[in-house]
Structures are given as structure tokens and as C-alpha cells.
Simulated assay, not measured.
Amino acid sequence: MMLERNMTASPSRTAKVAEDHLVLSEVGMTFGTADVIPSLSLAVRRGEMVAFLGPSGCGKTTTLRMIAGLIAPSRGRISVGWRDITRLPVHERDMGLVFQSYALFPHMTVSQNVAFGLEMRGIAKREIRVRVETALEMVQLGHLSDRKPRALSGGQQQRVALARALVVEPSILLLDEPLSNLDAKLRDEMRVQIRSLQQQSGITAVFVTHDQVEALSMCDRIVVMRGGHIEQFGTPGEIYEHPATPFVASFVGRTNRLSGVVEPSGRLAAAGQGLLAEGALPVGQVQIMMRPHRVALLAAHEHVPPGHNALRGRLTGITFVGDLIQANVRVGEDEITVEQPTRRSTALPLMGAEVTVSWEAGDTMVFAGGAT
């Protein structure tokens, strides 16, 4: 049994307004003399989960806090549906918040923690009991309703925090790096569970993280931020396969980077060797990037299929990382990393051996030399 929000759209609203649930219009934040977020505009669709992804200090948490009402924007407008919430206090925004620290009351039981928001809203005790039971079953914690937070594991505490946010049936769920305090195995489990709950409930969710795996695996679309600006906003596939800038390419996924040149004739070259790429290329000095797991390590004179690039180099390092082997190959002044699955029967070249690295033309990403 899932909690569902009973929403009826205003008949005067257009389909487009109904689709765009959370809208930020030229929202900015200034601290002192510093424009932390100069101007940010985006629309989150109803029922989708959007990640704000970026390094520390990029503005993602500040943006979430403005959406939540924890801080007021210096300029711009924030709306949910057709309602302007820019200056509304937190308790009038109809949002559920899940924090990194969980923020559970240590003196209350699990059920009391989950019920707290409903009690503050003056909900009848009988309804509170039913909704709390439903929320705890939803996160598979009904059998632990009488425990205190200190008697729970980190993953269980996180699920209590999630149930507490969902039980009030918010219009939007905000999650601020909720998995960063969990170990790797628990993070994997909670990623699946949070995404499943969000999809089943149909709630609109905004997820702040600096972890690319969380963003790629959990969200419908990703906002990649850098220095208070949006570098790119798109689906995980668009972000990963067609990054708009070198920063996006290197932050979302691992990449190799080569210095190259595109001649006026359109020929692409690096380390004195010609390369293949798809699409229009910027003439002049360029940055060439490709994903390590899409690069093959071949013997020096091994055949390369048509439509594939090939660069000759020298093997300089091999690292065993469990499910992968990383091989480093020096090509001219640059180094290329090759990632391939570990197989007991795979024989690798000797250190210092001449080798060829190869990848498909479609996996070549080319950016203007001065792009960042």
C-alpha cells in the first residue's frame, strides 16, 4: 500500500504548466559581494526525479535550500505548479526534506519520529496511526516501530527519515546527499529502494549529490553544476554520451584526454597520428576525450577494424582493481588508461611493450582547445 497525494489540477492551467511542476526562473543568490549563483533557470517535471550533481562549492546545496525555503534567494522566482513560493516560509511549501544527517529525534521511537510532522499539522490521531503504519510498511520497518534511533543501523535510520518525509504526502521530496553516511553496500541498496519508492508514489523529487553513480542510476534527468552555473541539463544518457563541455565529460564518468589538432581540411590528429570522429569538428587546437572502458588494448601490430581509431604507444603500468584491470599507455606526451574486465585467461603485454590502443570513431569526443 502506497501513500498517494490527492491532487486536482486547476482547469485554467495548461498542459505545459501541469507538466512543469517545480520551476526556477532566473534565481540567484549573493553572499556579501559574491554571486554564489548568478542566475539559474530550470523546470522539473511532475513525477520525475532530478539530480543536482557537481563538486563541493558548485551551488547545488544552496539551490536546494532556496527551493526548501531554508534561505531566501536574492533574486528570481520559484514556483510549484502555478503557485509562487519564493517568499513562503518552510512550513507552507508542502515539501518533504531528507537530510544527510537523518535528523531523527533520539528520545522518540520510530513511529513517533514518523508521526511528528502529522501531529504538527493537526491531523487526527486515528489517521496519524494509519498513515504512519502505511509509511513504515512502505520502507519495510513496520516491525521496528517501537525502537529508538540508536537501536537502528544507518540504513534503517535513513529509511525512517524517508518515511517521515513521505508520510505528510508532500508535493515535492527534497533529498540532500542522503546516502553519503552509508557504506558502499548500503548505498547500493538504498539507491534502489529510494528510486523504487519515488517511482511507485509518483512524487516529484530533487536529489543533491556529488556522486555520479547516484545521479546516473537514480534520476530521470541530471543538472550538472559548476561555479553556480548549469553546465548541462539532460537525461543520464545525454549527459554521459554527449557531454556539453570537457568538465561534464570528466566529472560524469572517467575519461582520457589527449591534446590534438583539427586541420583546416577537417583532419583530426593527435601524437602525429590521424584519428576518426563523428560530426562537425572545431578547427584548431582541440581536446580529445574517450571513455577508458571503451578503449581496447591490442598488440602493436594487431588488426584494427574499420571505423576504429588506433594509436601506438608503450605500456607503462597495470593496476588490478578487482573486477577491472587498468592499463596505462604512454602516447606521445599524453597517457591513455584502458579498462577491461578481469579474466583468468587474459594475458597482458609485458611492461614497456609497444601496444596499440583502439576505440570506435563514435566514442571520440572533441572539444575546442580552450573549452573547460
Rank of each mutant, 00 (worst) to 15 (best):
L268D: 01
V208A: 07
P282A: 06
V213A: 10
P282K: 01
P236G: 11
Q285G: 01
T209F: 09
L268V: 12
A271S: 13
V224R: 14
R267S: 14
R226I: 00
N256H: 01
Q273A: 12
R195S: 11
D220H: 15
P243D: 06
A249W: 04
H229W: 04
A269L: 09
Q200P: 10
T204S: 13
M218A: 07
L276F: 05
G227N: 14
G202L: 06
A249I: 03
H229Q: 12
T209Y: 07
G279L: 11
G253P: 05
E238A: 15
E189K: 02
Q198G: 02
S217E: 15
G279P: 04
M218I: 10
T255Y: 02
R191C: 00
V223R: 02
F207I: 09
G202K: 08
R195P: 00
A249F: 08
L276Y: 05
T209S: 08
V213G: 04
I194P: 01
I222Q: 06
G284C: 05
Q200V: 01
A215S: 08
L276R: 03
F251Y: 15
S265V: 07
G266E: 10
S201V: 03
T245D: 09
G284M: 10
G234M: 10
E263R: 15
Q232I: 00
I230N: 03
A205C: 08
E241G: 13
A215K: 14
E278C: 08
I239Q: 07
F207L: 11
L197S: 03
I239C: 08
T235R: 05
D211Q: 12
E238I: 03
I194H: 00
Q199P: 00
V262H: 11
L186S: 04
N256Y: 00
Q273V: 07
S265G: 14
D211I: 06
A269P: 03
V248F: 04
V223W: 00
L258W: 01
G253V: 00
T209N: 07
L216C: 11
P243C: 13
R221Y: 07
L216D: 06
Y240W: 14
A184W: 13
R221N: 05
V224S: 09
R267I: 14
T255M: 15
A277C: 06
R257C: 01
F233G: 10
F233A: 09
G234V: 15
P264D: 03
L258F: 01
A271M: 08
G260Y: 13
S265W: 05
L197W: 02
G260C: 10
D220T: 04
A270N: 02
K185I: 00
F207N: 04
E278Q: 14
N256S: 08
V252E: 02
E263W: 07
S201R: 15
M218Y: 05
T255C: 06
L281G: 01
T255D: 02
L275N: 09
G234Y: 13
A215E: 07
P264C: 03
G284K: 13
P236K: 08
V192D: 05
G274M: 02
G266K: 12
V206N: 12
D220V: 06
G272Y: 13
V206M: 14
V192F: 11
T245Q: 12
S250E: 15
R191S: 00
R221D: 06
V262L: 10
G274P: 03
H229I: 14
K185F: 00
G234C: 09
G266S: 08
Q193M: 11
G274N: 04
Q198C: 02
P243M: 11
V206Y: 14
Q212G: 12
H229D: 08
H242R: 15
